[in-house]
Deep mutational scan, measured.
Amino acid sequence: GGHPVTTQMVETVQNLAPNLHPEQIRYSLENTGSVEETVERYLRGDEFSFPP
């Protein structure tokens, strides 16, 4: 991942996926670069990993 992630982006995802840890959200956003894509992954039931 190398996309810039803002606190705003993390908070937006958190509102839609409250049971995800912020670190999981941030890591996913760094890989996708997209709030929409991260939320899609969540709704699909994809696994969210923590940063290594």
Rank of each mutant, 00 (worst) to 15 (best):
G1E: 11
G1W: 14
G1Y: 14
G1Q: 13
G1A: 13
G2M: 14
H3Y: 15
H3G: 10
H3I: 10
V5T: 06
V5E: 03
V5R: 02
V5N: 04
T6C: 08
T6F: 07
T6H: 06
T6R: 04
T6P: 05
T7K: 14
T7W: 15
T7N: 13
T7Q: 15
Q8M: 12
Q8S: 12
Q8A: 12
M9K: 03
V10I: 15
V10W: 06
V10Y: 06
T12S: 12
Q14P: 01
Q14S: 10
Q14D: 00
N15D: 09
L16R: 10
L16E: 05
L16P: 00
L16Y: 11
A17S: 04
A17N: 03
P18H: 08
P18M: 07
P18A: 07
P18S: 07
N19D: 14
N19G: 13
N19K: 11
N19M: 11
N19Q: 10
N19V: 06
L20K: 01
L20H: 01
L20C: 05
L20W: 03
H21L: 09
H21T: 15
H21M: 09
P22K: 10
P22F: 10
E23Y: 09
E23C: 15
E23P: 02
E23W: 11
Q24V: 03
Q24M: 05
Q24I: 03
Q24R: 01
Q24P: 01
I25L: 01
I25P: 00
I25H: 00
I25E: 03
R26A: 07
R26V: 08
R26F: 07
Y27Q: 05
Y27H: 09
Y27F: 12
Y27A: 06
S28A: 10
L29Y: 02
L29A: 00
L29V: 02
L29T: 01
L29N: 00
L29C: 04
L29M: 02
L29K: 00
E30S: 11
E30G: 07
E30T: 09
N31F: 15
G33A: 06
G33C: 07
S34N: 09
S34P: 01
S34Y: 01
S34V: 03
E36L: 11
E36T: 11
E36R: 11
E37N: 07
E37S: 08
E37W: 06
E37Y: 08
E37M: 11
T38S: 06
T38F: 03
T38I: 05
T38E: 00
V39G: 02
V39M: 14
V39A: 05
V39N: 03
E40T: 13
E40Q: 15
E40Y: 14
E40P: 01
E40R: 15
E40S: 13
E40L: 15
R41Q: 10
R41F: 07
R41I: 07
Y42H: 03
Y42R: 00
Y42E: 01
Y42D: 00
Y42K: 00
Y42V: 03
Y42F: 10
L43C: 08
L43P: 00
L43K: 10
L43H: 09
L43T: 07
R44V: 04
G45N: 05
G45V: 00
G45C: 05
G45F: 02
D46Y: 12
D46G: 07
D46R: 05
E47G: 08
E47Y: 14
E47T: 13
E47S: 13
E47A: 13
E47W: 13
F48E: 01
F48L: 06
F48A: 01
F48H: 01
F48M: 08
F48D: 01
S49M: 14
S49W: 10
S49P: 15
F50E: 03
F50P: 03
F50R: 03
P51T: 04
P51V: 05
P52F: 09
